[in-house]
């Protein structure tokens, strides 16, 4: 075989291979026109699960009914957990292999017999891609999902309205309640996302509000996991939101913490003064906020407001960047 023949063969092989790859690699597996059907079909075919879906802008919501979702003590059942994970995986697969403009997905699961408790799982699609490309760790990937176990807000509202109409002796109140709940005004933030009475209550999620929710979640987790903080404080509540106003866009985090009744410091024999405790708390809070916003390269905000029962802090974007880079110390702001 001459050198020319070998070169010709190699060239033909390469060309055929690349052409085939090009042809094979061109189209999306799940075209945007059939996105809902694709998710339903995938869950049905591969996981034998029936789901319902709804697209709202660049957000896709999936409802998964699971019988016996919780056990007697309201812990997530292991079989149910597997089903939930299967659907999350299925939706993730569709999310990354479609040509639809698809930024967030929501998986809502309820026990049909007990719809008053639901799990809402929200994931940013870019996070999946980054994880698959090895840009984020498995632990970080897990933390980037926003997970809430709650009563559907619509259920709360329905109960309140029923009580109200009952007291007012309004005839046939169900129609009115249904009409009210189905209006869009019923959903104002991520917290209102739900599935109630066979209807999705979803909205198009913005990255800013998703980050606010994620920070909120992270604060909750980190306060539990951080031994130093856990020693001094107990996190009662945390609320995060993104506020757009004429004065500028800002993240607002209200953290309700309280001193432990029986401080664990006794065990170590060391007691910090009030100032140091404050530094410890805000250092943690600012770091969490700074890390997340920087990880997502989010720039569309002007400041971050963090408030605790004892102290309030207002940090500009520029200041946050300096704290993150170590040019400014948190002590200077307290």
């Amino acid at each position: 075989m001459t050198r020319r023949t070998i070169v010709k063969l190699l060239f033909s092989y390469s060309l055929t291979f690349l052409l085939s790859c090009f042809l094979v690699g061109c189209g999306p597996t799940y075209p945007k026109e059939k996105l809902n059907e694709a998710i339903k079909a995938l869950c049905k075919k591969e996981y034998k699960l029936t789901v319902d879906t709804k697209v709202s802008g660049d957000t896709v919501a999936v409802y998964l009914p699971i019988e016996n979702l919780f056990d007697a003590v309201l812990n997530l059942d292991s079989k149910a957990s597997k089903k939930l994970n299967d659907v999350i995986l299925g939706v993730s697969r569709v999310a990354i292999s479609t040509d639809a403009k698809f930024n967030f997905y929501i998986v809502i699961t309820q026990d049909p017999k007990m719809p008053e408790v639901e799990i809402v799982y929200i994931r940013y699609v870019d996070d999946i891609k980054r994880f698959l490309l090895g840009a984020v760790s498995r632990d970080e990937y897990a933390k980037r999902a926003v997970i809430a176990i709650k009563t559907p807000p619509q259920a709360e509202r329905e109960r309140v309205l029923k009580d109200l109409f009952s007291k007012l002796n309004v005839e046939n109140p169900d129609e009115m309640i249904k009409a009210y709940l189905e209006s869009e005004e019923g959903i104002s933030g991520i917290g209102d996302i739900s599935y109630w009475n066979n209807k999705f209550f979803v909205k198009e999620i913005g990255l800013s509000e998703f980050l606010a929710s994620q920070v909120e979640e992270r604060i909750k987790i980190d306060f539990k996991q951080d031994k130093d903080l856990n020693k001094w404080y107990e996190l009662k509540a945390c609320d995060g939101k993104f506020v757009k106003s004429q004065n500028g866009n800002r993240f607002v985090f209200n953290v309700n913490i309280s001193n432990r009744v029986e401080p664990l410091y006794l065990a170590s024999g060391i007691e910090l003064d009030a100032y140091k405790k404050k530094v410890l708390v805000f250092k943690k809070l600012v770091n969490i906020v700074g890390d997340i916003l920087s990880a997502y390269k989010f720039e569309d905000f002007d400041r971050v407001d963090i408030a605790s029962p004892t102290h309030k802090m207002r940090i500009s974007k520029d200041k946050l960047r300096k704290i993150k880079s170590g040019k400014t110390k948190i002590e200077e702001l307290i």
């Binding site: 063969l9 092989y13 055929t16 291979f17 085939s20 790859c21 094979v24 690699g25 189209g27 999306p28 597996t29 799940y30 697969r93 990354i96 292999s97 479609t98 891609k129 698959l132 490309l133």
Partner: peptide, 27 residues
Amino acid sequence: IGGTILLVILAIWGLSTLESFYRNMTL
């Protein structure tokens, strides 16, 4: 030559069974 042709066919077939994201990642 036979082996290469077979491998090319298998590679293309393998790629076509992948979902587009994984396929693009491989490509």
